[in-house]
Simulated scan of single mutants.
Amino acid sequence: MSAREEILAAVRAALGSAPAPPEVSRAYRDVPGDGPVLDRFAERVAEYRATVIRCSAATVGAALVDALDGLDRVVVPDGLPWEVPGSVADSGLTAAELDRVDAVVTAAAVGIARTGTIVLDHGPGQGRRALSLVPDRHVCVVRASQVVAGVPEAVGRLDPARPQTWISGPSATSDIELDRVEGVHGPRQLTVVLVEDA
């Protein structure tokens, strides 16, 4: 018998005929926030020192140009549904190559109004994790239909088998004296382009 089998046998013996745990209710109570969900999402994202640009589906291209503010070296993932002038597609760029990129433009899987969080599940248009973490500026396009009120609704929309990156504002950390430093663990600048569906 292996050590693993011995440990599991000991756990089973200790449990004996213990009753099954009670069913946990997943009908979470959602406390309404202030204002409509999109307004709350934009407000909470901005509280994290991120920039929010609201636009219509017809003006996403112009909003992306504004968000990139003339940057030259921009990378985009495969499957991004919007044209980003002058950008290059991610072809497996190394971390060093991504570090020389000014910005990345991605889509998102979900936006959470209560926390101002965007979630990437790295599907089409979202790219691999390094793509959203290494360049200095991350521009993320979130459609209004992707914004939910709270975390339980977001989790319900996500596939738990997919990798996920949860982003609440630009990367930031504080030392013992609470001096805020941005860009240590990811992009120093985050711009969320919120597309208000018609």
Rank of each mutant, 00 (worst) to 15 (best):
R4M: 11
V60W: 04
A46F: 15
S87F: 02
I118Y: 12
P163K: 09
H185M: 01
D39P: 00
A130F: 07
R4K: 08
T94W: 14
V192P: 12
L178A: 15
V195C: 02
D30H: 10
D30M: 12
A149L: 12
A27G: 05
D78L: 13
W166P: 14
R54V: 06
L131V: 08
T173H: 10
H122I: 01
P36D: 15
E196P: 08
E182W: 07
L178C: 07
A149Q: 10
V11R: 05
G125E: 09
R12Y: 03
V11D: 01
G183E: 08
A89Q: 13
S168H: 12
E23Q: 05
L98G: 06
S87N: 10
V84Y: 03
R143V: 03
A58Q: 13
V193W: 05
P77W: 05
A14G: 14
I118F: 05
E196N: 01
R49C: 02
R4L: 13
V104E: 01
S132A: 03
G61A: 15
D175N: 15
P36K: 11
V151G: 02
G150H: 12
R128T: 08
L93M: 15
P77N: 08
V147I: 10
L120R: 11
H122T: 02
L80H: 01
V74W: 11
A108G: 08
P152F: 06
Y48P: 00
R143K: 15
S56T: 15
A3P: 12
A113M: 06
D136N: 10
L98E: 10
E196S: 06
R129Q: 06
P124F: 04
P19H: 14
R29F: 08
A50N: 02
G116K: 06
G35V: 00
E6R: 12
V76I: 15
R4S: 11
S168E: 09
E23G: 12
R180H: 13
P22E: 06
P21Q: 10
H185C: 05
S145L: 08
R128S: 07
D34I: 01
V134Q: 03
L194S: 11
R162H: 13
E47C: 05
L190M: 03
T191F: 09
D102N: 08
A13W: 00
V101T: 09
P85C: 13
Q126A: 10
R114M: 05
T115G: 04
V52F: 00
A172E: 12
T94A: 14
R40D: 09
